[in-house]
Every structure is written in structure tokens, then in C-alpha cells.
């Protein structure tokens, strides 16, 4: 199993599910040239674990971010929280592959043209589009030498997003 491909595919799956959960299903449109992306805010969150460490970044164009946000008063806070929730999904999914990561507190970057790397590279951003704008996610990972993700367990290992448990 190719670690990097699995991780990137997981990221795409998690991002799509996150947008859907906020009733804004976006269409995955692959990678795009950064020149065409006018992002206004990006949420950045680092993570580390025994087997891998890295950074996850979620960037959005202004109109889409406003549409997704419950309040325009906290746009910076909201992109940070969305990146936090995206990493949460990602780490919960990773448990199925036999590895655990721990996230840091998210940070926010302002800017219009964000260029982590060109789309020809494996670290290219994955874009999601709607008529209201674009969201893009990047995952930059360093994987421990010799580590290989396990075949995923069929059952969920972690509680799924939106679920609730109550104790006696």
C-alpha cells in the first residue's frame, strides 16, 4: 500500500465529508494551478505521531468561507476551527490504518496567492469547487522510514463525526 496515496485519498474523503456535514457539498475538482486561486484565509494545523508528522492546510476563497461560516464576525476563528475538524476526521480515519497522530492548535494565515508546491508534485493541493468559490486542502507529511500503513480495518475504530455517546 502506498502511504502517500492513501493519505492524500483520505484527506480528499475527509474534506468532502466535512463540507457535506455543513450542508455545502462541494465538487472535488482535482489539483489546480495556484495562480488561479485567490484565497483569503487559510487554517494551518501541525500534527505528529510515532509514525508520521506533518502539516495540514485548508484554504478558502472569501465568498465560500462566508457562506460556510455561521457568523462573519469570526472568520479567522472559523477557518481555524474547520481545519481542526478536518484534522480530527483525518486522525480518526487513520486509526483504522493502525497509526495515531496528535494535532496542535490551529493557526491562521492571510493571503491571496498561496503556493505550497506546484500541482505536478505529490504535495499539490486538492481543490473543491462550488459556484460560490473554492476550497483547497494540502497535506505535507514526513513518514518514518520503514513505516507502512496497515490494511484498513473494516469497522470504524473511532467514534464517527456527529455521533453522541452518553454514559450512566
Amino acid at each position: 500500500m502506498e502511504n502517500e496515496k492513501v493519505l492524500q485519498d483520505l484527506l480528499i474523503e475527509c474534506a468532502g465529508a466535512l463540507f457535506s456535514d455543513y450542508n455545502r457539498p462541494l465538487t472535488y475538482t482535482g489539483t489546480r494551478s495556484p495562480e488561479s486561486q485567490n484565497f483569503v484565509l487559510s487554517g494551518v494545523i501541525g500534527f505528529a505521531g510515532r509514525d508520521m508528522r506533518g502539516t495540514l492546510l485548508l484554504a478558502m476563497t472569501g465568498e465560500l468561507l462566508e457562506e460556510l461560516s455561521p457568523s462573519t464576525a469570526f472568520m479567522r476563528d472559523w477557518i481555524a476551527e474547520l481545519s481542526n475538524q478536518l484534522l480530527g476526521r483525518f486522525k480518526n480515519q487513520l486509526l483504522r490504518y493502525g497509526t495515531e497522530i496528535y494535532g496542535a492548535t490551529p493557526s491562521v494565515l492571510r493571503g491571496e496567492l498561496l503556493t505550497p508546491l506546484q500541482p505536478t508534485c505529490a504535495l499539490a493541493g486538492h481543490c473543491f469547487d462550488s459556484t460560490r468559490g473554492r476550497a483547497c486542502v494540502w497535506l505535507d507529511t514526513e513518514i518514518r522510514e520503514g513505516f507502512a500503513l496497515q490494511e484498513p480495518s473494516a469497522a470504524a475504530v473511532a467514534e464517527v463525526e456527529g455521533s453522541a455517546l452518553f454514559f450512566d
Partner: peptide, 13 residues
């Protein structure tokens, strides 16, 4: 703790 809810939360729950 009496409960555990995974974000994003469902308002009715």
C-alpha cells in the same frame, strides 16, 4: 464525564 459528542454536532442531539 456524562457524554461525548464528536464535532460537528447535531443540534437536536
Amino acid at each position: 464525564a456524562k457524554g461525548w459528542i464528536v464535532k460537528p454536532f447535531k443540534p437536536d442531539l
